[in-house]
Amino acid sequence: MSAPVPTDPRLDHRLEVETGEHVDHAPSPKRPGVGGQVWWRHALGILALMWALFPILFIYSAATNPSGTLNTASLWPSGFSTKNFTDLFNDSSRPFWTWYKNSLTISFVGALGAVFLGACAAFAFSRLRFKGRRGGMMFLLLTTFFPALLAIVATYIIFAAIGDVLPALGLNTVTGLILAYLGGALGANVWLLKGYFDTVPRELDEAAIVDGASHARIFFTMTLRLVMPILVTVFMLVFVGLYGEFMLASVFLTDVENQTLGVGLYGMTLGNDANTLFGRFTAGALLGSIPVMLLYLAFQRQLVGGLTTGSVK
C-alpha cells in the first residue's frame, strides 16, 4: 500500500472506486476515532442480521432435526438428519413433488402470460395514439386500488359455472387458477412496463416504419428485445407473487393432487399435525423456498432497481 494515507473518508471511497481495492489507512494520530467510527455500524449490522436470519436458521434446524416434531425443534441445529425429507417424499397422502410441480407450473405460465398481455398493452399505450389512451391508463391504475381478491365469492361461483361446461377450466384445476390469475395481469404491470417502453427512442420505430416494417414486426422483433430488462423484472415480480399466493389457490384447489405448495404445506400445520409433522413441514418449506430465493439472489440488482424506480424519479 504505497498510496499516501488519506484522512478524508470520501477520498477513500473515490480511491476504492477508482483502484478497485480497499484503502487501508492507519488511524491518524491527529484525529483519533475517525477510522474507528465504523465498528458500531458493523455491530448493529450484525444485530440486524441476527434478527433477519434467526427464523431461517430455525427452519434449517427443524428440518434437519432427527425427531421431527415442534417441541423438539430448537434454534441451533441438534444433529443432522435427512429423516424429515425422506418422510416428506414418502408420504403418499401428501404428494410434495406434485405440489411443487403445480406451484412452478402456475407461477411460470401465469407470469409468462402476464408479461405477454402486459407487454402488448404497454406497447399500445406507449407507442400508439388512440382515443381513450389516457383514460385507459387511469382506469388500469384505478383497478389496482381495488383488490380483485375481494370479488373472490363471485370468482368462485363463476368458475364453478365454467367447470360445469368446461371441466378442464373450472374449480379444482390448475388451468382454471391460471386463468383467474391472468385477470389481474394488466393494472400495475402495464404502468411499470409503459414507463420503460417510453425510454426506448421513438426514432427507432420511425426508422423501421420508413423501412417498411409493419407494427407487428416492430413489436415482436424490435421493441420486445429492447425492453427485455423490464420484461425480466415483471416476470420475476409476477412469478414470486403467484408462487406465494394463498387465498385464491386455497379456495380453488380442493383435491390434494391439484394443490400448490402453499395450500399443501398449510394443511400440514393444522391441529395435531402442527406438532408431529413440523419437521416434515419445515423440510418442505425449505425446499419450497429455493426457487424464489434463487430468483431473488440472481436478480437482486434488477429487483432493487425495479423497487426503487417507483420512488426515485
Partner: peptide, 20 residues
C-alpha cells in the same frame, strides 16, 4: 444479500413458520 432473505421467502412459509 442476507437482509433481503426474509423478503425472498414465500409468504406462506414465513407465516406458517412464525406460527410454529
Amino acid at each position: 444479500s442476507l437482509l433481503i432473505l426474509p423478503y425472498a421467502l414465500p409468504g406462506f412459509v414465513t407465516a406458517l413458520v412464525w406460527k410454529g
